[in-house]
């Protein structure tokens, strides 16, 4: 299980990286390498050139302003998990990213790499869709901004050109004290989820839910917004009936059966995860703490 031969380019500028991608077929970007290297060791893929972007330090880092959170594509999952500034405005990240793989893989794995790998059960694509993130991809003609819904084009298929590099992920933070919940069921700690549910909730002063986002990972070929579940909650106070309806409507999502579970099973797991995530998101003592 040794990787096949390839050429290696350690890019020292973004421009150099893009240019190398433009001029070579079958070139691949080496970011954290936590999926790519395994696939190469297994000889599932045979890139001609690996463009290592680990030296592009300008692509790493988290910046937070009242309107915008920007996470550089080369930000390590571990940095996202432990970022205090991110935890203050988007505490769901720490909770979800803690469940990504294991410590050793989070130390190397990046948010950009995870988004481009686009495993439907992975936590970061699920969060990206939850937050309606904007993906910034840079190609020969400079950067362009892609709505995450357009970025996710199909099973493990990101909507970028072969000579584009994802350079950052941006989203608007929800208001301080928002409710959040993230639960997933995996066979073992660190495994890909059979189903995951990510929830964000904003309430008005009278506790009415004004804004809600639900994103389900693992169940289908791509992460999915649970639109009808969101509709069930909006304008309610998150009462038992509204929650039950949102959970019930998990049946409207797309399901894909695989080795770890059929459709009926994934639906049951999805419902349980959503129930748990909603319970967390509606727990005002918890969101209060996040605001503090």
């Amino acid at each position: 299980m040794k990787p096949p031969p390839f050429e290696y380019v350690r890019a020292s500028t973004l421009k150099e990286a893009i240019s190398t991608l433009s001029h070579n077929e079958d070139a691949r970007i080496l970011a954290g390498g936590q999926s790519l290297m395994a696939m190469m060791n297994l000889r599932y893929i045979f890139p001609s050139i690996l463009v290592d972007i680990n030296e592009l330090h300008e692509l790493a880092g988290i910046s937070v302003s009242p309107e915008r959170v920007r996470i550089g594509a080369m930000t390590r999952q571990r940095a996202i998990e432990t970022s205090q500034t991110l935890a203050e405005v988007a505490p769901i990240f720490a909770e979800a990213v803690h469940l990504v793989g294991h410590r050793q893989t989070r130390n190397r794995g990046t948010i950009g790499g995870s988004l481009c790998h686009l495993d439907p059960a992975a936590e970061l694509p699920t969060l990206a869709l939850l937050y309606d993130c904007t993906i910034e991809a840079t190609g020969p003609n400079g950067p362009r901004r892609i709505a995450v819904a357009d970025f996710i084009t199909g099973y493990m298929t990101p909507g970028i050109a072969p000579d584009e590099i994802v350079t950052a992920v941006e989203f608007g933070p929800w208001k301080p004290g928002h409710g959040y919940g993230f639960h997933e069921f995996a066979r073992r700690h660190g495994d890909f989820a059979i189903a995951s549910a990510a929830v964000l909730i904003e309430r008005a002063a009278d506790r009415t839910i004004e804004r809600v986002a639900i994103c389900m990972g693992g169940v289908g070929s791509v992460p999915q917004r649970h639109v009808s579940g969101e509709a069930a909650l909006i304008g309610t106070k998150g009462d038992v009936a509204a929650v039950a309806l949102a959970v019930e409507r998990c049946a409207q999502l797309d399901y894909v059966a695989d080795f770890h579970g059929g459709e009926e099973y994934r639906l049951s797991v999805a419902r349980t995860m959503l129930r748990r995530s909603l319970a967390d998101a509606l727990d005002e003592t918890r969101s209060g703490k996040a605001a503090a």
């Binding site: 290696y8 390498g33 290297m37 690996l50 290592d52 410590r103 050793q104 893989t105």
Partner: peptide, 13 residues
Amino acid sequence: GASVRGCLMLAVQ
């Protein structure tokens, strides 16, 4: 300073 999988990182890195 960070633990890594030695099989998922190239020596050149």
